[in-house]
Design a protein around this nucleic acid. Sequence first.
DNA 1: CCAAAAGTGTTCATTCTACACCCATGG
DNA 2: CCATGGGTGTAGAATGAACACTTTTGG
Lengths: 251, 251
Amino acid sequence: MAEKTIDRPLTEVKSQFAVPYYEISYDKFFQFGVSVDCVVFGYHENRLKILLIKRGAEPYKGMWALPGDLVYPNENIEVAAQRILRDLTGIEDLYMEQTKVYGKVDRHPAGRVITTAYYSLIDIAKHDPHASAWAEGVYWLDLAEMPKLAFDHSEILKDALVVLQQRVRHQPVGFELLPEKFALADLQALYEALLNETYDKANFRKRILSMNLLISLKENQKDVPHRPARLYKFDKQRYDELISKGFSFEL
Amino acid sequence: MAEKTIDRPLTEVKSQFAVPYYEISYDKFFQFGVSVDCVVFGYHENRLKILLIKRGAEPYKGMWALPGDLVYPNENIEVAAQRILRDLTGIEDLYMEQTKVYGKVDRHPAGRVITTAYYSLIDIAKHDPHASAWAEGVYWLDLAEMPKLAFDHSEILKDALVVLQQRVRHQPVGFELLPEKFALADLQALYEALLNETYDKANFRKRILSMNLLISLKENQKDVPHRPARLYKFDKQRYDELISKGFSFEL
DNA sequence: CCAAAAGTGTTCATTCTACACCCATGG
DNA sequence: CCATGGGTGTAGAATGAACACTTTTGG
């Protein structure tokens, strides 16, 4: 397997729409494996983390890799993505979205494997990897200190980060990374970490609050050695409402 | 083929990272077909057009469909995408970008086929479908009068339009749809068609010109029954320069 | 009372929007 | 000289950036 990449197929077969479907054998086309790789972002103590596994098998044994697996022939891709993360973390129904497909001919030593990358955001505090539901060999690594990864996973991770940064500016997905109740300073720190920026405190809160997407709880931080901050939660319902009216979230 | 979608695989096989690779047979996983479907946008007389083919074979014989084809086992996906459009239009090196993967278990009657959608933008005026290089059965259809398409192509088209609208706001890809030389009013009409908006003429030109991404040619429109407009062309070199300095195109 | 971070108000500059007006060409 | 769209200027509103200031808590 894994022949060289070519610019034209070596075999000459008529294309899908020029020839009746069932007249010629398509067996030679049905040789692909399909996999899913998950880029799971977490956020803890003002740092972005990625969920990685230490490979216990060849190829790339001992190297860090994104969690991923082959898709079953009778399994939908999104279902596979959810399955992989459920098996790893015990969490059902994670927020997940596609980023890109990777299909280079020689990207996988075991054969021709097309992989779909998904990214996911989870609140580390709520989902402790030391809990019993978690699989062994799963770790949070700091994004800033990322080692080289197995397969083309370094590239996948890099692309996913770009997609995340893009999305987080235009959709309020960042809230997935925070606990349900959070202070505005937490939100600001998160955005600063995600986008490598710094914002003026006063202006940041004016901007966020003016969107009316946060519900001010009647509850404050506790046990902090300074004035405790008011806690907020994200108003999903109002967001959906605004979206349907053509509102567009920005930064 | 095309069994029902399930939430858990019926067969029990150990996952990729828990078991050494070559110890168990992965044959059953390597049964997928991979295809590419292309959403080609064109622009003519203030209307957005889509390149479609009329299917001459089962399934969905006689229906409109996106141009697409199966990927060869030794062919890279982007290469396949370029090949499909080259065979259809005779054009080499089209601007193309991935939008999404579609992999529902039952999306294709011939078996399990994962498809990657690409979108592409081409200048209709420059690439006449009546030219001899073009394949038969290929037509431009008005986006506003789109019929129901074969397979899940209606969904693919809808998603691609959203991606295009997203991209066109943040990257100057729209220029791919225009002739090399164009008037500012053409550009404005294009953006209005793409985004379903209207802009103030004066403000639109101020915004665009202030980016310094257009080169004013020493050439005007001809044969128009009114004052001829100045022609411009897109300054790709300057765009790359600005991008590398952290500039970000908006609207 | 001090340190530390929460939270608010004001000013000034910049950008955006609406709209009025002039210009060049063909008929 | 008129119709048609090309092209420009300006005033007022809205937004955004910078920064100083007040408040509340723990120690």
